[in-house]
Every structure is written in structure tokens, then in C-alpha cells.
Amino acid sequence: MSVIEIENLTQDYQIGFWRKRNVRALDSLNLRVEAGEVFGFLGPNGAGKTTTFKILMRMLRPTAGEARILGQPLDDLRMRARIGYLPERPYFYHYLTAREFLVFCGALCDLPRDRAAKRAADLLDQVGLSDSADKHLRKFSKGMLQRAGLAQALINDPEVLFLDEPMSGLDPLGRREARELIANLRARGKTIFFSSHILTDVEAMCDRVAILNRGRLVESGRLSEILKTRSNEIEAVVSGVNEEILAELREFALEVQPTPEGARARLESDRDIARLLEVIHHANGRLVSVNPARESLEDFFMREIGGMK
């Protein structure tokens, strides 16, 4: 079952004061996110990611097209009670304490006060803010606000979670905790639709991704389908080699990247493995690993988006 259905979603903005003209921020976006998926929404700045989130969260009315969440139109309030959202630059009422803020969010989701208070305490613990629960949000750092934002998105125990740049502002520990939280939510069958600039996080967490550029969908699908193996290419990691050997490797390898222990060599096919072995054996080097070459999400991103810029 598709939990998020986006059909031909288009958003135009008017810019200019005297001579107004239209700028297309989103161009006929089609997307489906299935139940239980962790779906990554990628693209450079200005690609249309936040515009898509804003349409889904009723901040913008689309110029054309439509979207449904949990099979319901975007204005359906019963559906709203089943989703959670973390905005890209979260601003929360600074005069409230973290606990008061979460209880307030619970009230907006129709939670009875005592249940909201219990849920708030649990969530503050989950996101590592229980020590700061009664501190005013104005005293929170960016990372702490991001954690509070994650907690408010979860206050109603949503089935679908929309996270716009959830790792933004988090330190490495916070990022790891957020990744664990997302993995935990996924294990509980939640659907997560999130955007991120941090490709390694996306690669580590997502079942499927969609890549957007200048408002258009560039690619969408499973990471294993998008990040195809590079035909017959082989990636070999070697250690204990010197500059002379690296020069020899460069004679037949497609690419050689020195590493602290040795080098990473990309070969055209497995036919070159024998020659590689011969070269490193001659230098008393060591073969560490041989794998079919597979591009990273970053490689793919740079190839697809970098070429268009």
C-alpha cells in the first residue's frame, strides 16, 4: 500500500515586484512511498525538497497536481493525527520548556493531558533531553532544538514521519542517536520520508531514494538499483606498496587512489587481477580485498547533479 502518493505536483512562485514572473520550484513530481519504508529525498539546495514538504504539510497550495497521505487528501484532519513532521529550520516557542512544548503539541493532536505528559517524558528520555526537560527552549542549542523537534514529531506516535533535514545541527553523537531512533521506528513499522544532505546517512538508512534537481525528479528507486555495479569493473584494495608500484599499477588500472595503508585500484575487469597480483607480489605488498566496483551515492549524486549544474 502506498502511504504517500504524489501525482504531477507542481509549484510556481511569483517573483519580482513590478514585473512579476513565475519560477517553477517543483515540476510535475510523481512519487510513491510504500508502508514501512525509509525513503530518502535528496537534491541540492533549491531542488524543491522543502517545497514538497511544505505542500505536504499544508503550508503551500500546489499550482497543479495532488498528493495524498495514508490514502487521504492533505486537508484531512484525521490523517494529520496519524503523521509527524520535523521542519527544516525548526522554531519552537522559546518561552516554553521542552516538556510544556511537547504537552502543547500533544494537545494539538488530541492527546489527553495526562497521556501527553507521560508521552512527553518518554520522548524526552528517548532523544536525550530528560535533564533539560524543564529548561526554556530559548536556552537550547541548535542540536538540542533539533532533538526537541524530533520528539514533537513523535508525540502522537505517528504512522508516517516527515523529517526535513533531521541531521542538521546534530553533532556526531546526536547523528548516531538519530540514526538509531530512525532504525528503531522503522523496526516498529513506521514509514519515514526524510530529506538530507548527508549522503552517507541516506545510504545507511534508506530503502529507496528519490533525487530531485531544479524541481524535477532525476531518479527514483532502490539504492541497489540506482547504484549499479559498474559493468565488469573490479575494485581491489592493496597494502604495503610504494610509489614505484603505484606507478606500475597506474599503467593498467582505470584509477588508483593512495590510502594510508596502500592503495585502492579500480580495474577494467577480473582479467587484470593476475597482473595486479604479480605487481604487488614483486613489491612484497599484500592484497586486502577484491570486489565488484559499485559506485557510492555520492558518486551517483555528483555524476547526475554535478553534470546538470
Partner: peptide, 14 residues
């Protein structure tokens, strides 16, 4: 201006 509206409108609030 401060973006708090995004949080409110994402909730089941008319």
C-alpha cells in the same frame, strides 16, 4: 516569520 506556523499546520489543526 519565525516558522512556528509549519509545526502548527502539520498537526490536526484547522
Amino acid at each position: 516569520e519565525n516558522g512556528a506556523i509549519a509545526n502548527i499546520l502539520s498537526k490536526p489543526v484547522r
